[in-house]
Design a protein around this nucleic acid. Structure first.
Length: 620
RNA sequence: GCCCCCAUCGUCUAGCGGUCCAGGACGCCGCCCUUUCAAGGCGGUAGCACGGGUUCGAACCCCGUUGGGGGCACCA
């Protein structure tokens, strides 16, 4: 898509006028809602849409929002919330005196709490806006499990509410971004089963969806912010700021001191004459910045605690804290679900949104929800350095995407108090951001494996077979597609294999012996079960099987028991151990008789013979 | 240093002021089943960080302490 097109679509003057707050008749329900968000409407649960979409006292919501922006007490203007029909709000996060009354019985975690972002106008909407969530990673390096958990929750949130998921690529940092990583991101999304309604490769009305193609848009918005007085040019160097703070007896760590807000034209001209180019900073409002976090409740930053921040570098390159909200605004994002690490930057975004709304670029402030960290060993957040954080290793080991998503979902969310296995569909049906936990969650490989094993066992045989084939093929055990004979063997062994596997790649070790001419016998297994005194077992087994007329698991079991247990007087454990190792090369295998049946007489006898030779060797 | 977030078994969680001497899952331990390994069945282990309030009643609400984490860029 042509970058200019996006610019034309969103930034012409009439667009700016369209939603001006001053205008008497706003348009609460956007026409484009008809294009999107209808997809899942039918599958949305019976009650939650009411919660999200019911007509609401939007004036009060607006007051709510504006109060926050103005530093008044938001709660004073809030409405008592109607309890959720199915589930009342669960906690009260409000802090400080004077909040309790407002919250009692209502809770602050209802979705409608923060007001409808897109309805910042003084007339009740006839069609409540649909939810527009987004996922906007930057394509640097490998794909992180925490990142995909964020993607999952955004996806589930959008799908549950019959909303739209926008996928945007934040590739403004050319030095770190790579095309390879971009492709990898899309691929990982698709592997996990997360689809998007707007974004790369699917398009949409708010493109382009890669920031690298949107520079003109940012330039334009920056100019408007400057012209309207919301932003100003700043010439101070870090050294100058530090010096000023020191001189005032303050800690330089306080950061920028808003000094350049008050520069006169003469001063600016003087700086330019020196050859200095200004950065563009946003003028932060002089009030508390407050919002009602979807997962954490009310969060407040005191007025003056956040300095004026840089929107655009001196060299003209726009920065993430500027570009991200601008895109969200232009793309009509209503719900921002992102990592907890971004929480401290939210007050700046709130201020930016207020400015963008004022100049007509945004039509309100979205709801924010800050998802807890995914941590590794210890309590540190899982870093990109940690090999455990790379989603590829799970995929390569043969985690099922739906099982991995299931586990990821458990990192901060639960479907019920007595259940933790579910499908993607069930997650969509039940997902409620408001019930996402605020505590960091440790990534537990053991649990992830257990969840995967459960999903694996539940797979229909043919599904299991087709998923396991690529792994066997990669190991050179079967062709892909497999031959008829290979398929026959696979289908027969599948039910027995499924309950012995944790990940798909386990099939290589577990089933390999069925697809080769000669097994390689594991040394430890041989040492344990192919000793000289075990030779008699192999002999007896061989003669019992040589002329067995009916080569079936049942007959094999019958003659083997007769020959080894009754004939040799061995305990079952001693009787079948050597045979198992001879046949499969390992001490652990699928059930023996079925394995022998599938192996066939010829290979079985040959392996018994070969093992016999091995066992007869003098120990050592 | 400043700001912010978080706090229930080892881990992930349920808990929404009485139904909780706290429920589920993973892990771990034991038993049963059993040709191995699993699966399955049964049982067990283990937790409300601490201190003050509020209340007839607190895991739950408030305050504080402690502990953990994160953020404080012309990175994203």
């Amino acid at each position: 898509m042509d970058p200019r097109q996006g610019l034309r679509l969103v930034l012409p003057d009439r667009t700016l006028d369209r939603d001006r707050p001053a205008r008497p008749r706003p348009r609460p329900g956007r026409p484009r809602d008809h294009l999107h968000g209808r997809r899942r409407a039918a599958s949305a649960g019976p009650h939650e849409s009411a919660d999200l979409r019911r007509p609401h006292p939007d004036l009060l919501h607006l007051a709510d929002h504006d109060a926050a922006a103005r530093g008044r007490r938001a709660d004073r203007h809030s409405v008592r919330r109607r309890p959720h029909p199915a589930r009342p709000a669960r906690r009260h996060h409000d802090r400080g005196p004077g909040h309790a009354d407002q919250q009692r019985g209502g809770g602050r975690r209802r979705l409608d709490r923060g007001g409808f972002p897109m309805s910042a106008h003084p007339s009740p909407p006839t069609t409540p806006p649909t939810i527009r969530a987004r996922f906007c990673p930057s394509p640097t390096g490998m794909v992180h499990v925490g990142l995909m958990r964020t993607a999952l929750f955004n996806w589930a949130h959008a799908r549950h509410n019959g909303g739209t998921l926008v996928f945007r690529i934040e590739d403004t940092d050319a030095t770190r971004d790579s095309e390879e990583s971009y492709r990898h991101l899309l691929d990982s999304m698709r592997w996990l089963g997360l689809d998007w309604d707007e974004g790369p490769e699917v398009g949409g009305p708010h493109g382009p969806y890669r920031q690298s193609e949107r520079h003109d848009i940012y330039r334009d918005v920056a100019a408007k912010l400057l012209a309207s007085g919301h932003a100003y040019e700043s010439f101070s160097t870090n050294e100058e700021v530090d010096a000023r703070r020191l001189a005032a007896g303050q800690d330089p760590k306080l950061g920028y001191d808003n000094y350049d807000r008050f520069l006169t034209d003469e001063q600016k001209a003087a700086f330019r004459a020196e050859g200095r180019e200004p950065v563009l900073r946003l003028k932060m409002p002089d009030e508390d910045l407050v919002w009602n976090d979807l997962v954490r409740g009310e969060i407040r930053f005191a007025a003056g605690s956040v300095p004026d921040f840089v929107l655009v570098r001196a060299n003209g390159v726009p920065l993430y804290p500027f570009v991200n909200p601008v895109d969200d605004a232009l793309m009509g994002i209503t719900d921002v679900l992102r990592g907890e690490d971004l929480l401290p930057s939210t007050p700046r975004q709130l201020a930016l949104y207020a400015a963008l709304t004022d100049i007509g670029v945004a039509s309100g402030t979205p709801r924010f929800g800050h998802l807890p960290y995914v941590t590794g060993e210890g309590n540190k957040k899982l870093s990109k350095r940690d090999p455990q954080s790379n989603i590829d290793i799970y995929r390569q080991r043969g985690f099922l995407p739906e099982a991995f998503a299931n586990y990821l979902a458990l990192l901060g969310w639960s479907i019920a108090d007595d259940r933790d296995i579910f499908t993607m569909e069930e997650m969509v049906e039940a997902f409620d951001v408001t019930r996402v936990s605020a505590n960091p969650a440790r990534f537990d490989l053991k649990k992830a494996e257990a969840i995967n094993a459960t999903h694996l066992r539940a797979l229909p045989v043919d599904d299991f077979v087709s998923r396991v084939i690529p792994f066997l093929a990669a190991a050179g055990l079967v062709s892909d597609p497999p031959s008829d004979e290979q398929r026959r063997v696979l289908e027969a062994i599948a039910p027995l294999a499924q309950e012995r596997m944790i990940v798909l790649s386990d099939a290589v070790g577990l089933l390999g012996f069925l697809f080769v001419d000669d097994v390689e016998i594991d040394e430890a297994a041989a040492a344990k079960n192919l000793r000289p005194e075990d030779a008699e077992v192999l002999d007896a087994a061989e003669s019992a099987l040589r002329d067995l007329p009916d080569w079936s698991a049942a007959s094999i079991e019958e003659v083997l028991k007769a020959a080894l247990v009754e004939g040799l007087g061995r305990k079952p454990r001693q009787a079948f151990g050597p045979v198992r190792v001879a046949v499969s090369g390992r001490t652990v295998s699928p059930p023996l008789y079925e394995s022998i049946e599938l192996l066939g007489r010829e290979r079985t006898l040959a392996r018994l013979e070969a093992a016999r030779t091995l066992a007869a060797r003098p120990a050592g």
